[in-house]
Amino acid sequence: MVCAIIAAAGYGRRMGGDQSKQLIILNGMPVVARSLRAIATCPQVDQLILVTAPEQIATLETLAAELDLGKPFQVIAGGSERQYSVANALKAVPTDAEIILVHDGARPLVRPEQVGAVVDAARVFRAAGLAAPVKDTIKTVNADGFAVGTPDRNCLWAIHTPQAFAADLLRHAYAQAETDQYLGTDDASLVERVGVFIKLVNGGYENIKITTSEDVCLAEALLARRME
């Protein structure tokens, strides 16, 4: 059984204003609605847990119900950080779940077949994530803002979501992070800390995260191209 967690508790301060970036309308549909629909459409996913800010639970329950996802779902309160939100969701994941998939609600352009590919990879390798090779030359910098190194671009990938894991592995990684008081930037970083490599699945460059107003413009353009 595969349980998908959709993290949608962030407000996106870099967008400006106080509206949740998850509820920004993207070509006629809220960002998080597009994410939910893509995850639910994947045949490998059996149920969904949507994590949001406490004051938005009723709003997102209504939104998810109106989408007619065709699969069981629940909406629960998140925490002050993404990691705490996912930790809350893990408590609601059924004990018989074999694979737990985590996706950022702010990545609305993911395709159902990409979700399925990550789940399939996790069944084989226990940990997998959608990613893309880095196109830019990357520099490491010092505290004064000077470039001090140039990593080999052939060894650099940008990891996205969804990320999927064997359920026992993800629970163990989160428990260890809590014990160590470690705060990571994604679920894969927690799993790496307990000694497991992440199998990367090439998802291309369309699976962008809505973080700034420029991302909204780009996402709309990509959606328009899909419709063509």
Rank of each mutant, 00 (worst) to 15 (best):
G79M: 04
F165V: 06
N142S: 10
P30D: 04
G78R: 05
D180Q: 13
V86H: 10
V194N: 05
Q44A: 13
G105A: 09
G16E: 04
P151Y: 15
V93C: 11
D68F: 06
G12Q: 07
I198M: 02
E206F: 02
I138M: 14
H103V: 11
L218S: 07
G17T: 05
M227G: 08
A64Y: 06
D152G: 10
I138F: 13
A97R: 08
G12I: 02
R37Q: 14
A127F: 07
D180P: 01
D104L: 11
K139F: 15
H172W: 11
G116H: 04
G78Q: 07
V118F: 00
H160L: 12
N88L: 13
G16V: 05
G78A: 09
R225M: 11
T161A: 14
V32M: 04
V110W: 03
G78E: 01
K135L: 15
T179L: 08
G204W: 02
G28W: 11
R107K: 14
Q181S: 13
V134A: 11
R34I: 08
A158F: 14
A219C: 06
V141S: 10
L23A: 13
T62Q: 14
Q163I: 12
A7M: 08
G70V: 02
A219M: 01
D186E: 00
L200M: 01
V216S: 02
Y84A: 14
A65M: 07
V31F: 03
E81W: 09
Y174W: 03
G195C: 11
A40P: 05
T62F: 10
R107Y: 02
L169A: 09
I49A: 10
G12W: 05
H103E: 07
E55I: 08
G28P: 13
K135W: 10
L36N: 03
K139H: 15
G16I: 06
L26G: 10
A143I: 02
D180H: 07
E228L: 05
L200N: 00
D96H: 11
A92M: 13
D18Y: 12
R13V: 06
A92H: 12
Q114M: 03
Q163K: 10
I138Y: 10
R37A: 14
M15V: 07
F197A: 12
T140I: 14
R193G: 02
P112R: 00
S80R: 15
I100M: 08
L36F: 07
I24V: 15
A122W: 02
D180V: 07
N202I: 00
G16P: 00
D136T: 13
G10I: 01
T185A: 09
Q44D: 13
P43H: 01
L170D: 08
L170P: 04
S213H: 05
A38I: 01
A122C: 06
F73D: 04
E55H: 11
D168V: 04
A106D: 12
I138W: 10
E66Q: 05
P133K: 03
V196W: 10
A8W: 04
Y11W: 13
V45L: 07
I210K: 01
Q181R: 12
V191L: 05
Q47C: 10
L170E: 01
L60W: 15
Q56A: 15
V93P: 02
E220I: 02
T140R: 12
T211F: 09
E178M: 14
F165M: 03
G12L: 06
L130Q: 06
I159G: 15
T52D: 05
Q22Y: 15
R34V: 07
D68A: 12
A188W: 03
